[in-house]
Design a protein around this nucleic acid. Structure first.
Lengths: 154, 154
DNA sequence: CAGGATTTGCAACGGAGTTGCAGATTTTTT
DNA sequence: AAAAAATCTGCAACTCCGTTGCAAATCCTG
């Protein structure tokens, strides 16, 4: 099975010097298609819906799902090579997204709707970096979290 | 036992229409004395060191400590009346501080040292509120998280 | 395609937040 | 001041999620 997107995922992984495993390819594709940061379980869920069956011990499983530990470690490896990063939300579980529009230093604000709970990455804003005048602090990273109502719930 | 600070704590609780319990008084005092956001266990630890013994089932306990559930619910009640709020850190456990310098809408950035792990509330800065131009988002709250090296570790 | 390097799944653990409930405290009423 | 009502506290037990150990499966390289 080969599709343009799948090939792209493979290339990305190759460039990052990571094994091209089905799990990584699938998760990367899910993130490429995602419009917003996703939780691990949401990622697993979407992977399960994928066409090319993930070959693994449970390949024949109707759900075709990845183990949560696998998702966890896969994301870990993707984060390590800076392809993915954790979004910074009001919710308890971590959210993940491609590190596309963001630098290590600063990334777009993450907005969480207090009504529906969905988190969005607001790619059109970037707050200025904080200028810390207090003695001796060295800031390496800044993240902004917003809370309110999303268009659908407002 | 009565001290100015203790009396102040009582008054605050009274004004907030909360029962003046030993747990609330003690925790409020700990937060008033704290220079930075604290985790629940840190709060419990400090309460345990307090002079006026917390009268409770375990009053004679050498540790004179509060149950974590009590700390949890006490903080919850203090948050509900806006006396306290959760700081927004890079660590997994929540941190609490008096809602002194902050409004519900916007609070000072929280800085976490990547070396020693300590979190500070940088009271001298306030980033402008994000202007969300994306269609239809209503922002009610903004929080900023900073990461880097604190003066002691730099 | 064999063999070593990595990854995956399972099971089991860990930290931190939560809940139910009975008994203890605080406040209010009498 | 005592009794009643309202609220809190501690205990035990649970949930959610992230994390680790280890053996089996998969991926890459020669």
């Amino acid at each position: 099975m080969t599709t343009p997107q799948r090939d792209k995922a493979r290339r990305i992984l190759k460039d990052a010097k990571l094994y091209c495993t089905e799990a990584r390819i699938a998760i990367l594709q899910v993130l490429m298609q995602a419009a917003r940061p996703l939780r691990q379980d949401q990622i697993a869920e979407r992977v399960a819906g994928f066409q090319p069956a993930i070959r693994g011990r449970n390949a024949l499983d109707t759900k075709n799902a990845l183990n949560k530990v696998t998702v966890y470690r896969t994301l870990e490896s993707l984060i390590e090579v800076s392809l993915v990063h954790r979004a910074f939300t009001y919710q308890r579980a971590w959210h993940f997204e491609l590190a596309d529009h963001c630098t290590e230093h600063q990334c777009n604000p993450h907005f969480t709707c207090t009504n529906c709970g969905v988190t969005h990455c607001l790619t059109d804003i970037l707050l200025p970096m904080a200028k810390v005048s207090q003695k001796g602090f060295i800031v390496n990273r800044q993240q902004v979290r917003l809370e309110g109502l999303c268009p659908a719930c407002a």
